[in-house]
């Protein structure tokens, strides 16, 4: 399964067929600090992903203040 990570933008391949929580754990990312996007929709860490899915993991943390 392809996962797009941001800042800097890159793509990684990880196994699908499991809960998003497990994917995030493998990537070392806390679910509270990212949006997980599949097909243009937000999904939660409890949702499952298939091998054929494409995910974007988008950090929400920003520095410096607006």
């Amino acid at each position: 399964m392809k996962v797009t990570l941001r800042n800097p933008d890159r793509e990684v391949d990880v196994p699908g067929g499991r809960a998003i929580r497990e994917v995030l754990d493998e990537l070392g990312v806390s679910a509270d600090t990212v949006l997980v996007i599949r097909d243009g929709e937000l999904v939660t860490r409890h949702d499952h992903v298939a091998e054929s899915d494409q995910l974007e993991v988008r950090p929400v943390i920003s520095g410096g203040g607006p």
Binding site: T33, L35, V60
Partner: peptide, 8 residues
């Protein structure tokens, strides 16, 4: 509102 909420 948290950063997660504003981003969402």
């Amino acid at each position: 509102l948290s950063e997660l909420e504003t981003a969402a």
